[in-house]
Design a protein around this nucleic acid. Structure first.
Lengths: 123, 123
DNA sequence: TCCATAATTCGAGATTACTCGATATATGGA
DNA sequence: TCCATATATCGAGTAATCTCGAATTATGGA
């Protein structure tokens, strides 16, 4: 990932409505949601949401697919990994031992090692 | 991490000079760099850089420590982990299996490959 | 073809962000 | 105290972003 694309992604996520939309679409993986449903979900005018969706798409964070009269949007999960990697790659390239714990803490969230713990991460 | 802080962080990183500064400071962990050196490194006026550093600090991405006449800035590595976790936590809470590969791909960047000893993780 | 639905694009006013010269504050040394 | 260094804050001009009403494009059905 080059700098310009990272800027686009961060700018896209630096807006409350768009950040919520991206997280909503991540939660709705892999089915996705049509544009209209997203607008209703966020209580935002339909054309305003269309602009936000275009910005997220241009940033490579989500993707669109027409399905009959609706356009289904889906989160591109790889984008999160690419962004995080872009930030830390210089650090890791030179000194892996510094970034190791950073990733170690993130892994438990997604590793279904023990599903029967006393606390659910879900809210 | 709450939404408002994530917005601040993404907005801070959505600017070329600040994104470069943050990555520079990650590369310079854990020593950090004084403000003046950072400005010279980026070929940016000193007061402009001061503003950028204030924005990164307010976003919780870097931290400042006065050392004699200089002020040393350091990256807060945890911020990257917190941001990534904020994005994917809903997905992971409900369906860990979807996000697992996402993290798996990021790990190799920070895991000391071969070279034996899997111990000794700093500190 | 006509109509209804679904989504995008256009345009403009209001708000916010970026930059940098000028000025102010803080520290250490003579 | 006075000076030099290091950084922060102020102010204003310029540029970019956000929002949403209005108009436009695309699809499917009668």
């Amino acid at each position: 990932m080059e700098s310009e694309r990272a800027i686009l992604a961060f700018a896209a996520l630096a807006q409350p409505t768009r950040l919520d939309v991206f997280r909503l679409l991540i939660a709705r993986e892999p089915e996705g949601l049509p544009a209209g449903d997203i607008a209703r979900h966020m209580t935002v005018p339909q054309n305003t949401m269309s602009t936000h969706l275009a910005i997220l798409t241009r940033a490579g964070l989500i993707e669109a697919e027409r399905q009959s009269r609706s356009i289904i949007y889906r989160a591109k999960l790889d984008a999160v990994r690419e962004l995080a990697f872009y930030l830390v790659k210089d650090c890791c390239g030179g000194r892996p031992e510094i970034c190791a714990p950073l990733i170690a803490d993130l892994s438990p969230c997604c590793t279904p090692k023990n599903e029967a713990t006393q606390e659910a991460v879900h809210e």
